[in-house]
Every structure is written in structure tokens, then in C-alpha cells.
Design a protein around this nucleic acid. Structure first.
Lengths: 146, 146
DNA sequence: CCTAAGTTCTCTAGCAACTAGAGCTTCAAG
DNA sequence: CTTGAAGCTCTAGTTGCTAGAGAACTTAGG
């Protein structure tokens, strides 16, 4: 049995985060010692490592909640898990595309600023004028910041 | 003079967001009509468009606050503005790199899941075992989610 | 056995950057 | 003149944590 600190070290998750996961029901309520301290089994460590890994891949806690409840029923079809992962992949691809466009624009913006004055600053100028904007990230709805 | 709704339409920013920007001091307090409604000048529209565009490029409100105060002093050197933009570019580049790695891992994860059962599901399996993870996003501190 | 340091406990509040809702007033069109 | 849209203020919620207060527990040394 591990104390919360050891568990956190083992899984690479901070202690308050573990308590937070328990609070929102992502982890089950931990057993307690005589002195009311949380105790964790190896299974709990695996579950936490799963969460940690999924988070590091950008899955939301909601998606992880779904994945966890799927993994608790190993006899079911994995279509749902696959769908979640594919949705996440699509998300990442779309973010990548948008970030690539942003990078291009920032690069154009930053190229020349050779010690001039603000009045001539490309950065300020470009930000102030959408006409300079090549990509269409400006107009419809730039939701790439979530 | 524009009402807040027209301003929002013109700049592509939602009405509550404008009020929020005013509340946190990113926009100056608006003039008011006889009936206490906010009225905006062309200058305010420009300022809001500036904010909107910078946000769409991923600048934080803090960075935008700095950029705005720089743009209010056009006689100064633009080195500071340049530095902010370069920092933002570096941020974007780093996020791009991390997202690219994530995409690769998600793709590997998602490739084969041909209607099997959860027990054999690559998605669940990969998430449960860090050893499957090729990239190093797992261990040191995966801060790519901000 | 005792004490001091280190962990853990609960609880509340805060972060970014908004968004949503309640309940009210004002404005513009017909 | 009335009705419906748009405005007002205020509070609270979102996501995924993080930080702090103040109390209790646990463990190692003397």
C-alpha cells in the first residue's frame, strides 16, 4: 500500500491532483489508514498512470472517464474506445493545422523589426490591420484556443 | 458611435467578452448614452480589432496588454514588441513540436482496432502502459496542455 | 518517551479567458 | 404605443488543476 505522496511520485502526478481526481470521481475513494490517510494499491497506481498518460496525450478528463469505464468492461467491443481516440486525433490534427498557420503569420510579422520605432513596427501594424492577415483564422470564428 | 452589439459584430467579438475586457481594464471604460448604454468610437473598434487579432494569434491577454501599452507610445523602440512576438512564435513552435509527437502516437494507437473486444484494444492497452510510448512526453513534465 | 520535521488531512480560493443565466431597463420599429 | 430585441448589472459556472491555511498524523533521532 502506498501513501498519496509515493503514489504521486510513482505515477508522475502531484498530490493535490490525485485528491482532485478522487473528488471528481475519476479515481474511486481511497482506502484510509487508521489515521485517515489515503492508501493506494497497485491497481490504483495503474489507473492513475492510465489517466496521466491519456492526459499527456491531450484527452480531456471527460474522454478519460469514458475510456476508463470502457476498460472496466473488457468483453465489450472496442469501437467506442477507438472512436474516442480517433476524435482526439482529429482534434490534434486540426490544432496542428491552425498552429501551422499561426506560425507562418508570426514569422512574417517578426521578420523585420530592426530597431525601428513603434510607429513603424510590423508587429503592431500587422496586429492592428486584418488586411495583412493571409490566413482566414481571423474571421469566421477563431476557436483554436479552446 | 456604436452600441456594444454593433461593435461586437464589427470586430467579431461577443458582447459579454467586450464587457469582460472592459472589466479587466483591457479596454477603457466606454462612454455612456443618456440611458446608460455603452457607446464606442472608431478608435475603440480599432483597439478591439487589435485585441481580437492578437488573441486569434494566441497571444495571452497579458501579452496583449503589453502590446497595447507599447502601441500607445509610437516614439519608443519596437524592440519590446518584437520580443513579445518572438516569444509567442517560440511558444507556437514548441506547441507544434509537441502536437506533432502526439499526433504520431495517436495514429499508432488508432491504426488497428478492427472491431475487436476491449480486452485486445490497442487504445486502452497503449494508454495503460507507458512502455508503449515512443516519445518522451510522458515523463519529465508534460506541460503541453497549458 | 519525546520532540521536530515531514506528510497528510480538509477546506477555501485562485488562475485564464471567457460563457451563461437571472432579472431588470432602454431603445427602435411598426 | 406597444412589443420585442438589445442593453444593463450581477453572480456563478467552465476546465484542470494549483496554492494556501491550519490541523492532525507519522516517522526518525536523541
Amino acid at each position: 500500500m502506498l501513501t498519496i505522496g509515493k503514489l504521486g511520485d510513482a505515477a508522475g502526478v502531484k498530490v493535490p491532483t490525485i485528491r482532485y481526481y478522487e473528488q471528481i470521481g475519476l479515481l474511486p475513494e481511497a482506502e484510509r489508514s487508521a489515521g485517515n490517510q489515503r492508501l493506494y494499491s497497485r491497481k490504483a497506481l495503474e489507473r492513475l498512470a492510465f489517466i496521466r498518460h491519456a492526459r499527456s496525450l491531450g484527452f480531456t478528463l471527460e474522454a478519460i472517464r469514458d475510456l476508463l469505464s470502457l476498460s472496466d468492461r473488457p468483453d465489450q467491443s472496442c469501437a467506442a474506445a477507438d472512436a474516442i481516440a480517433r476524435a482526439q486525433l482529429a482534434e490534434v490534427e486540426s490544432r496542428l493545422a491552425r498552429l501551422t498557420a499561426l506560425k507562418a503569420e508570426l514569422e512574417r510579422m517578426v521578420v523585420q523589426c530592426a530597431g525601428g520605432k513603434i510607429a513603424d513596427c510590423r508587429v503592431i501594424e500587422v496586429l492592428g490591420d486584418h488586411a495583412h492577415c493571409a490566413t482566414d483564422h481571423c474571421h469566421p470564428h477563431a476557436d483554436h484556443l479552446e
